[in-house]
Design a protein around this nucleic acid. Structure first.
Length: 582
RNA sequence: GCGCCCAUAGCUCAGCUGGAUAGAGCACGAGACUUCUAAUCUUGAGGCCGCAGGUUCGAAUCCUGCUGGGCGCACCA
């Protein structure tokens, strides 16, 4: 990867240097914090190419007013030959107009860095563990898992592109009551496979058809050995076998979405290794776990309420409503009790933890954050830990809610979705809404091939670029070339400037942990390209391929090629294919 | 009753972590094009950023309190 700086980074550094100079001249006090100084494109392009709020942010420390400080900054900036104009505007913004050559250089940078354009080293040396999906291994992946899966996967890619080492992790809940139920349900199907009439699947068992092949496989492997045997003889064995089968199925489902985890962490193994005990011991030693009576939830006392003494974690110290049990009255760990130990296990191999959870688990965020804070502080330094909540998705078909019946085990699976609309549509659509807001997913709308559909719109831009390059080569024998880039006009510059946003968009998205920003950025970039393309309709002189001007054609092809590269890079982060034709 | 999330154009949503006159698509109004690179294009109108306070040079953005919607609320996961 080239060491060359992107344009925005370069100008941020220039502003920084000017501020250094002002400190040296004692206009600014030495060591003035600059955290709020921003170098951004102004919202209104007529204001210029770049704007900085430096004078407004620092005026107070300089004991002067923003415009006066701006004067001093502008004085120094105007000396730079790369800056065509530096003007003070509004309350104290400094607007910069850059020589075209700056932007053209950015185009060269894209061409040089290719799929690495936008990659940064900001996160270098820091390993981030992103835990996502972690669906219970009791059935196929369904709709409810989809959004978190996509958001988590895109976030992982984004952080990786931002220079982090990323561990993509899946927590397999193979130790609780649910996998016991799974084992019993598999045993039913096993008996069924042996020819027994099992009738209706009783209450308390998983009714789904997907367990039939599991039962068949067990029958093939064990014959009728366990058909009449007491549960104690087969429960553990069947649990392991059926969990393994479920995980195979889940991995297949995830692969359909293009998702592959690095680590599948087993809760059963975690417990077998005694990790929860170790955590409990430490917490008790620090008075963060005590034996106490669980209070009834306020305002809603269940009728069968019974006070029980349990080992409780003092999550109220961290803002939770009540202290939370880490063990059940039967002596087993609660989900939470094991989960806090699990987070410590993850922390062994990472500098930062991120969990992606469904909004239905929002109520448990406080306790786990509290536990991680307590335990990681105990180990020395608190580990940064973030829980990203992904809100519900409502499935629609032509505006009508899709009906699902959980009781019959008949729900929309991820496999169904991907088969119907395709991986790219599922992924991109899931990223066209900020994760903390609810969203609708309409099967009818998301496959529409029109500009109303962002997936299509972005892919169409890429396909157009590809076909143009191909056509130019085949029909006119012209290849992209940077030789005549100085002939680029204002319309081309607009497009180039949009493409040059990519690195800072990536950085901002990574920092905010918001991959959806990339989707919106790509939509804007595609819009800019389509707008440029459409100019050729009214004015043939603005087309990319010009029969009578091979030199300008080559330059515009070069531009188009780089736009395509940026679209590819962005789509790669989202895990969406950059198709070459539609 | 409590906690978390959301509320921006008629509709669906952005708004770059406090900046300049709040943006896009759809729908609506006006015009262009008759297939040329149209699975269209240009342009117009459309806003009390849910409400009320507060913080400051400056708020859709931060804080407090309401209103409305979603999710969750004992040992489940």
């Amino acid at each position: 990867m080239s060491k060359q700086q992107t344009l925005y980074a370069a100008y941020a550094a220039k502003i920084d240097a000017v501020l250094d100079a002002l400190e040296a001249e004692a206009v600014l006090p030495a060591g003035t914090p600059r955290g709020n100084v921003a170098v951004e494109p102004p919202r209104d392009p007529s204001h210029g190419d770049l704007a900085t709020n430096a004078a407004m942010v620092l005026a107070k420390q300089a004991k002067t007013n923003p415009r006066a400080l701006a004067e001093k900054l502008v004085e120094k900036l105007a000396d730079d030959p790369q800056i065509d104009a530096a003007e003070i505007a509004g309350p104290g913004f400094i607007n910069l107009r850059l020589a075209h050559s700056n932007w053209l250089k950015e185009l060269d940078l894209i061409a040089a860095q290719k799929s690495d354009y936008g990659r940064s080293t900001r996160g270098a040396g820091r390993t981030v563990n992103v835990e996502y999906v972690s669906a219970n291994p009791t059935g196929p992946m369904h709709m409810g898992h989809c959004r978190g899966a996509v958001v988590g996967d895109a976030l992982a890619a984004l952080l990786e592109f931002g220079g982090h080492d990323v561990i993509r992790e899946y927590y397999v809940n193979d130790a609780g009551a649910q996998v016991q139920t799974l084992a019993r349900s598999a045993h039913l199907r096993y008996k069924e496979a042996l020819g027994e009439d099992i009738g209706e699947i009783p209450e308390g068992f998983y009714p789904g058809e997907y367990l039939k092949p599991v039962g068949q496989k067990l029958a093939d492997e064990f014959g009728d050995q366990y058909a009449a045997a007491p549960e104690s003889e087969w429960l553990t064995l069947f649990r392991e076998k059926s969990v393994a089968a479920m995980m195979d199925m889940i991995r297949t489902d995830l692969a359909m979405l293009g998702i592959h985890h690095d680590v599948f962490a087993s809760e059963a193994e975690l417990q077998a290794a005694g990790k929860p005990e170790a955590a409990e011991k430490w917490l008790r030693a620090h008075d963060l776990v005590y034996d106490g009576i669980l209070e009834a939830p306020k305002g809603k006392t269940p009728e069968d309420w019974e006070p029980v003494e349990l080992p409780l974690f003092r999550s109220t110290r961290f803002g939770d409503d009540q202290d939370r049990p880490i063990k059940k009255s039967d002596g087993n760990w609660t989900y939470f009790g094991a989960d806090l130990a699990y987070h410590m296990q993850k922390a062994d191999k990472a500098d930062e933890l991120i969990d992606i959870w469904g909004a239905d688990h929002a109520g448990t965020v406080k306790r786990i954050k509290a536990a991680v804070a307590a335990l990681s502080e105990g180990e020395g330094t608190a580990i940064p830990f973030d829980v990203k909540l992904v809100q519900m998705v409502q499935l629609l078909r032509g505006g009508e809610p899709v009906k699902m019946s959980k009781r019959s085990g008949n729900f929309i699976t991820i496999a169904d979705m991907v088969e119907e609309v395709g991986k790219d549509v599922v992924r991109f659509t899931m990223l066209t809404r900020k994760p903390e807001a609810q969203m609708d997913f309409d099967f009818a709308k998301v496959v529409e091939a029109s500009k109303d559909n962002p997936v299509f719109y972005v892919q169409y831009a890429h396909a157009r670029i590809h076909s143009t390059l191909r056509k130019a080569k085949a029909e006119a024998g012209v290849q992209p070339s940077a030789d005549a880039l100085d002939r680029m006009g204002d319309d081309e510059m607009t497009l180039i400037k949009q493409a040059a946003q990519f690195p800072r968009q990536v950085e901002a998205a990574a920092l905010a942990r918001e991959p959806h920003r990339i989707a919106f950025y790509l939509y804007d970039l595609a819009a800019a390209f389509h707008a440029f393309w459409n100019m050729g309709n009214d004015d043939p002189g603005k087309r990319i391929i010009l029969a009578e001007d091979a030199e300008l054609t080559a330059a515009r092809l070069f531009l188009a090629d780089q736009i395509g590269q940026v679209i590819r890079n962005g789509l790669a982060l989202l895990g969406v294919e950059a198709v070459e034709e539609l």
